[in-house]
Computed example of a mutant assay.
Amino acid sequence: MTRAVVLPRPRPEIEALPRYSTASGVATVRWRASSNESAIAPSPAVAEAIARTGTHGHLYPTPFSDDLVAALAERLSVPAAEVLTGAGSLALLQQVLTAFTGPGTEVVHAWRSYEAYPILIGIAGATAVPVPLDAQHRHDIDAMIAAVTSRTRVVLVCSPNNPTGTELSTAELRHLLDSIPAHVLVVLDEAYREFAAGDVDGVELLRAYPNLVVLRTFSKAFGLAGLRAGYAITHSETAGHLRAAAPPFGLSSVAEAAACAALTETAHTDRIVESVRAGRRHLRAELTARGIETPSSGGNFVWIPVGQRAAALEAACVAHGVSVRAFPGEGVRVTVGERAAEDAVLAALNGLTSDLTARRPD
């Protein structure tokens, strides 16, 4: 008789977590416009730093990435005690939630926003409080303020917002920060800030609001998504608590060396940013010509709000050799920066029925 297999069970809140989804056709398409990666590879100087550091792969990095922290502190004109690094900004967000939330606490965030937010909140044992975006696909700041309760420990803000690309102004963020109790952390996720058109600088805001944590990354404008390097800037006391919640050696020596080199390669970063801005202009103009309205984007992507027709658009794109990121019932996010991929998306649209390209989305 076959013996029944009984496996250990995780905590109930882990079992109930939503799973991070992936785009269709990634393994088979010619172009990937689904993951917000850079279409431009790292510069030769970064590649050389990776190769050089790899020869010392038998040695541990410093526990808290001393060289990169020093370089970032100098670049941002902040004390090194206010800077933390990690394996992407997502790892740093997990440290924030681990250190400052837990069972019985709440985290307020906009929705739709970054898909990983409710997952990380659940892992920390806290309760996610999603606040719907407004009719313009933007954070509803007043509704987020109203959602704060005595149980709120963190308010998450993503600007530019992933996946809609919409941005908040400095005035809107100041209104939020002025309205949030000082004991509540406000986390400003600026993963796409280099592509933004607005005036927001989280580091400047931090000077006036010590309960702010600013998250940034090397994955997007610096083109290092595969190496997983990000950083946070916050008040030195908060940073100390976050270091206590962080595993040592959280950033590999190869990722640290690449990030340090990328900071000096400003022309290369500018090239990546300009390719994205040109791609956004091209794709949005062509979508408008086809009767599809899209929100202005500050990210390296364009949001196509086609509602219930998102899955059909994703399938058509895969058939034309390009993966995109569909959010069923809401829309499709298209990474820009590679003209051939953008044109493949447009060709997919051209082949769909006219009701998909109706001006008013579901």
Rank of each mutant, 00 (worst) to 15 (best):
R30F: 01
E15R: 15
S38W: 01
P130C: 02
V129K: 01
Q95K: 08
T294W: 02
L356Q: 12
D270F: 05
R309W: 12
A41I: 12
L205R: 13
P79T: 14
D66C: 10
G202C: 04
V69R: 05
A311M: 08
R216E: 04
P10K: 05
V332G: 04
S89G: 11
P132N: 07
L206D: 10
P163L: 09
L133Q: 12
G25Q: 03
I123M: 13
H58G: 02
T164D: 03
V306F: 02
V336P: 00
R290I: 02
V186P: 13
R281Q: 11
E194F: 00
A255C: 07
D134K: 09
A341V: 07
T22H: 11
P63S: 04
H282T: 14
A232K: 07
S43V: 09
A315W: 03
V186A: 05
R138T: 12
D66H: 12
A49C: 09
A147C: 09
R271S: 11
V29M: 04
G337D: 01
L287W: 05
T238W: 02
A27T: 15
L283W: 07
A267T: 15
L349M: 11
G230V: 06
G250M: 07
R19I: 11
S77N: 10
R277S: 00
N300K: 00
R271M: 13
H235M: 03
P12G: 09
R325C: 10
A348S: 15
T101K: 09
R112D: 05
G240L: 14
L97I: 07
R216S: 09
E286L: 07
A23S: 15
V83Y: 05
A27N: 10
L212M: 09
T335Y: 10
A128M: 12
A344P: 15
A278M: 01
G125H: 06
A312V: 14
T149Y: 08
T152G: 02
T170M: 02
I304S: 06
A208H: 15
A143E: 14
G331D: 07
R207Y: 08
R207P: 02
S169R: 07
L72I: 14
A16N: 14
R174L: 08
E15K: 14
Y209N: 11
L313M: 15
V302G: 01
